[in-house]
Every structure is written in C-alpha cells, then in structure tokens.
C-alpha cells in the first residue's frame, strides 16, 4: 500500500506540475487539467478492477469508464457547442454506458454465473503486477514524451488500461470476465486515442464503436451457447481443439 501511495503521490506531483506550467493557457489548460484528472480517475478504476473479486464490479467499472470517456469527449465542445459534434459522445455513452453493461448484466443473470471471478492468482500479486507494469508504462511514456508531443498522463493511463485488460484476460478464467477485460482494453485504446489526437474522422470512430458492440454482442451469444452446450463459463470448458 505504501508503494501505491508513493506512486499516486508522484502522479499527483506530475499533474500539479503540468498544472502550474499550463496555468496561463486558458482553455487549453482547462482541457488539459480535465483530461489529466479524468485519466487519473480512469487509473483508479483500474486499481479497483484489479482488487475486486465480484463480477458485477467489473460491469460497474466499465460503466464508470464509459462515463469518463464520454466526458472526455464532450469536454472540448464546451466552448463551441454543436449538435453534430455531440453525435459521437452520445453514441459512446449509449454504447458503453448503457448498452454493453446492460447486455453483460443480462448474460450474468441469464446464465446464473457465479458472482466471484475465480482468479488464478492472488489478488495482491495481480495488483503488484499491474502496479509494476503501470510504473514501467509511466516511465516509458515520460521518456517518450520528451521526444514527441504527447500528453503523458492520458497516454500512460490508456496504455495501462490496455495492459490491465490483457492481464485480466490472462489471469482470469471466466469468459465473461474475458469480455470485460477486452472492453477495458478497448476503453484504454479510446483514452489513448484521445491523448494522441482526435485525428480520426467521426464516421470511423462510430464504426469502431459499432464494431466493438457487435463483437461483444457476438461474444455474448457465444457465451450463451458455450454455457448451454459445453456447460461451463470459463476457459477450462474450451480445450477440445488440440494439435
């Protein structure tokens, strides 16, 4: 825990540092602050994700992350509002906060999946792994940000989310948790994308969102089928295909 404290301390330091440097830059400053704050919140949700042992908590975290991302998207338009610009955040909100979590909840209820996530390693170890990778990612991002113009905190948070997503998949057995892990990964990419720049045209962004949704939808169907035909919700049921 001491480690976490020191880590978060350094993160806050970093944030404040940015804060003071950019203090004079008005709008951009606010955007930056907000971005950083939201990213930190995002990271915290990841920590929560790594210590919780309830499946439903995952869904809540996903919802929370969805809200954060929506806010992140809406934020730039505060100055110059337009309906058109709101399409993307609205879709995002709809898909990530309402549709997908609901769908996952429904699956959990329908299939009567056990509430605990059945981890394969101890929670504390998992947390340590995540903290470790997070530190590395932050250090690397910091190094990289010197050569390129990137926002370190959103960048690193996004990347951490990607790593956490992967680790959730690797260290958890339940398929539904795998789906959640995948979504965390997607969220991470999204956050990361906003950090990089909003280069992608909106059509494409919406396409991406749709794709993600359909993937999750198909995965849900597949889990349904798996639980009915293979009578299991985790990877141990999937071992037929061998070389």
């Amino acid at each position: 825990m001491v480690f976490i404290q020191s880590c978060s301390h350094s993160i806050i330091q970093l944030m404040i540092g940015n804060f003071s440097v950019l203090a004079s830059l008005g709008y951009k400053l606010i955007k930056n602050i907000m971005q950083n704050v939201l990213s930190i919140l995002f990271c915290l949700s990841l920590f929560y994700l790594s210590v919780t042992s309830r499946v439903k908590a995952y869904v809540t975290v996903l919802q929370f992350q969805g809200v954060l991302l929506t806010v992140l998207l809406v934020f730039p338009f505060i100055g110059h509002f337009s309906i058109y610009a709101l399409i993307l955040p609205a879709t995002l909100f709809f898909v990530k906060v309402i549709l997908i979590p609901k769908y996952i909840k429904k699956i959990i209820l329908d299939l009567d999946i056990k509430r605990t996530i059945e981890p394969t390693i101890q929670q504390i170890t998992f947390l340590l792994i995540i903290i470790f990778s997070m530190t590395i990612i932050f250090i690397i991002s910091n190094v990289l940000s010197k050569s390129t113009d990137i926002e370190t905190i959103p960048f690193a948070s996004g990347f951490t989310a990607i790593a956490v997503g992967i680790f959730v998949i690797i260290y958890r057995k339940k398929l539904i948790v795998h789906v959640a892990g995948f979504l965390v990964l997607e969220n991470g990419i999204f956050l990361f994308g906003t950090a990089v720049a909003s280069e992608l045209p909106m059509m494409i962004e919406i396409g991406v969102l749709l794709d993600v949704f359909v993937v999750v939808f198909l995965m849900g169907i597949a889990i349904n089928k798996i639980s009915s035909t293979l009578s299991g919700f985790d990877v141990t049921a999937l071992g037929r295909l061998k070389d």
């Binding site: 398929l175 795998h178 995948f182 993937v215 198909l218 995965m219 597949a222 089928k225 798996i226 035909t229 293979l230 999937l238 037929r240 295909l241």
Partner: peptide, 9 residues
C-alpha cells in the same frame, strides 16, 4: 463453438 470463440476473441 470453441473455434469461433477463440477466433473471435
């Protein structure tokens, strides 16, 4: 089913 899951995922 397993193949589909694995591939998709």
């Amino acid at each position: 089913l397993e193949a589909m899951w694995k591939y998709l995922f």
